[in-house]
Amino acid sequence: MRTDFAFIGVMLVTAFLLMGVAVFAASLLRPKKPSPAKLETYECGMETVGDAWVQFRVQYYIFALIFVLFDVGGVLLFPFAVAFNVVPIYAVLVVILFLGTLMMALLYAWRKGALQWD
């Protein structure tokens, strides 16, 4: 188990270094002739207007928050799924209750129109 995680660590470092080497090698090979026009922000050929300061809609945030809450809910189910074969039968009821509560949350979001993208 420990050497397994050590391998994951080694893999992380190796992959990062390999990708870094690729970018570095490309930076040696490629031409580099910057000009002010080249370095401008791309805006379909138009003159760039202002900063990238766009006002975002709150809908993005609402979808993210629904996702976050379901994500943590899902994480809690994993230990139970592993232990499924050794738990008594009433444990299934507990999990159904858990999932039912999550569904109520989803239903609330649905009824409030939070799942509607427009």
């Binding site: 709150v58 945030y61 609402i62 928050l65 629904i66 809450l69 379901f70 943590v72 809910g73 809690l76 507990v94 209750l97 858990f98 509560t101 999550l102 109520m104 949350a105 609330y108 979001a109 409030k112 129109g113 939070a114």
Partner: peptide, 19 residues
């Protein structure tokens, strides 16, 4: 189960506040 309730309450509260 309390965790599930917390998720429900957080969902209700956050959507109510942010929408």
């Amino acid at each position: 189960l309390l965790a599930a309730v917390l998720i429900l309450v957080a969902m209700v509260g956050a959507i109510w506040v942010a929408r």
